[in-house]
Design a protein around this nucleic acid. Structure first.
Lengths: 125, 125
DNA sequence: CCAACCTTGACATGGCCGTGGTAAGGTACC
DNA sequence: GGTACCTTACCACGGCCATGTCAAGGTTGG
């Protein structure tokens, strides 16, 4: 057979056998199996594993994030919800003209009016 | 401005004051501050916080994932790299005759390069 | 000036992630 | 048929996420 078993694959990809199993279980790589159940790594899988290593190292994220990225592509509703969220990004709580908010919000709370007037000067974190 | 302080905001959004500070520090919400440094929550922030709660509950992910989703929108290179990764999703190798492996690999690689090139063109701004 | 509220910082905890190890048992192949 | 390799399952551990809580000190507004 032209496919490598897990320890050989580990040697040529830089992952540990333990992690190769983990990656498969995380649903990030599909493998075929020998009749006896051995994992078989073909060239495509090996390349994918090497690419994966490079990805994680280069951008500094983990397998969990990769899994979430996949959810994003496979669940349009999730994607839409997050797009909405980010597109609603509010500009800093701005200065609404004092007269406006005063008119319709006055009755609910006693205002911290003075505070709001100076709020925009702050940039501290 | 009709801005609430942190405990008031906590009461009306369902988050704890602790989490409101955490969310701000995680970069997921921008706030203004009073002259003395108090966090001020306006209507936009309050709504955003409620939406955030609903999002996490509905889709079952966490603030970390939200942060990663934001990386995806703000780092086109990361996005492109992950798109490439997922688009290269390999078919199970077991149904491919050994003789076909090489050709299959080459085609996949061509597709990858084409995709990357296309992405680059689209992004040349 | 004072009570109530806010700030940052630190310590604590439970849970999941990434990773290693080990044990008990099946497979490959010479 | 024996040796080397594979399988799954479980225990462990350090790290980070999401939270809570507490302490020491500053802000707010009557």
């Amino acid at each position: 057979m032209d496919a490598l078993t897990i320890n050989e694959a580990a040697r040529t990809t830089g992952w540990s056998p333990r992690m190769l199993r983990y990656i498969e279980r995380a649903g990030l790589l599909e493998l075929s199996r020998s009749a006896g159940g051995y994992r078989l790594y073909g060239p495509a899988q090996l390349q994918r594993l090497r690419t994966l290593r490079e990805l994680l190292a280069r951008f500094g994220f983990g397998l969990a994030e990769l899994g979430f990225a996949r959810r994003l592509r496979s669940e349009p509703e999730l994607r839409r919800a997050l797009d909405d969220w980010f597109e609603t990004e509010p500009a800093r709580p701005e200065f609404i003209a004092p007269d406006d908010w005063l008119r319709w919000e006055q009755e609910k709370h006693q205002a911290l009016i003075a505070a709001a007037t100076h709020a925009n000067q702050l940039e501290a974190v």
